[in-house]
Amino acid sequence: MRAAVYHGERDVRVEDVDRPEIEAPGDALVRVTHTAVCGSDLWPYRGQSDRDTPSRIGHEPMGIVEEVGEDVRSVQPGDRVFAPFVVSCGECEFCRRGLHTSCVNGDGWGGDNGGAQGEYVRAPYADGTLVRIPDRYADDEDALQAALPLTDVMGTGHHAAVSAGVAAGDTCVVVGDGAVGLCGVLAARRLGASRIVAVGHHADRLDIAEEFGATETVLEGDGGVDDAAEHVTEITGGGAEHVLECVGAAGAMETAVGAARPGGTVGYVGVPHGMGDGLDLFPFFGDNVTLSGGVAPVRAYADELLADVLGGTLDPSPIFTKTVSLEDIADGYRAMDEREAIKVLVKP
């Protein structure tokens, strides 16, 4: 089969690799029809985090089940499914608590199960991992593209909002205008926030934030304000009780805690990078600001978010601003690296 393989900084190639096969009774083999390039894929792509070379890459698969092991009960060949960015068994202590990313049997997609930017993946623990899309939507391309972000960024933005404690009538701030930040705006609106301030560095992305439900936007940097936290504090009259940090960089965390009202909560989901010698906790300590969040257990949210997608009340698909074939995935990486695309849809 064909699959994307990471060979080092700015070097992703599509190569012939062995097709995965059923190895255990709980496995399913899925033919990938939709996948994506994630912002977290850019860290190794830019040489800013370590990754084995060569190695399969990608973690947002959607496709059609082709074969299942003898113990699989939740899906069957022909079913349309998607999978969160981590494998989870669905039965261990942590899965039962909704912390699927801490599953004791957990795994990623980049090993011998295929890598999700390829033609096939083997899904271990299929009953715990795969989410089935009802047959009536199995060929509805609009619905499928709206559901694909549930593999990662929509569930991650939702985790930021939940961790920040967003509820009906609240004022909240979303720091970050990438795919996760934009989905954080959608999540805050879905949870009933009455005022959503989106903070970012790109005017065109903040326009999408407004389409997604942001009531105000703050452009930081060139052409915008120099200190976003100070500006947010001014326009909100002392900061927000609920702040979503959706970037993972030190500057974004500083903006988030600076925009938080004393006694408020920062829900963070950005993969930590560039924190230097460590996060300065004094601003949190001094104003009794709670820091909550972490890697998003998107499987815990998948069913409720899918219901809203299929019901027509949730559509994160506008985050896909470029579509490429698997063979052209290197151009997708380039476009995201150069900020020409927010998120790239890949159709093998």
Rank of each mutant, 00 (worst) to 15 (best):
G181K: 01
L206F: 12
V174L: 07
A198R: 11
A188T: 08
G157R: 00
L186V: 09
G200K: 06
G169V: 08
H202M: 14
G181H: 11
G184A: 02
A203K: 13
G176H: 04
A203S: 15
A179M: 04
A161I: 09
H201I: 12
L191A: 03
A168L: 09
V185P: 06
G181I: 03
D207K: 14
D177L: 10
A161Y: 06
D170W: 11
S194W: 07
I196M: 06
R205Y: 04
R189C: 09
G184N: 01
A161H: 02
I196L: 08
A198C: 11
R190G: 05
R195M: 10
V180C: 04
A179L: 01
A161R: 08
H159V: 00
G184I: 02
R189G: 08
A179G: 14
A160H: 06
A168H: 08
G181L: 09
V180Y: 03
R190W: 03
V180L: 06
L206H: 09
V199Y: 01
T171W: 11
T156Y: 06
G157I: 00
V199S: 02
A198G: 12
V197W: 05
G165E: 10
D207R: 15
A179K: 06
G178L: 11
V185I: 11
A160L: 05
T171Q: 13
A164P: 07
L206W: 00
G181V: 06
T171P: 13
S194T: 13
S194G: 15
L186F: 04
H201E: 13
V153N: 10
C183S: 02
G157A: 00
L206C: 12
G169M: 03
H201G: 15
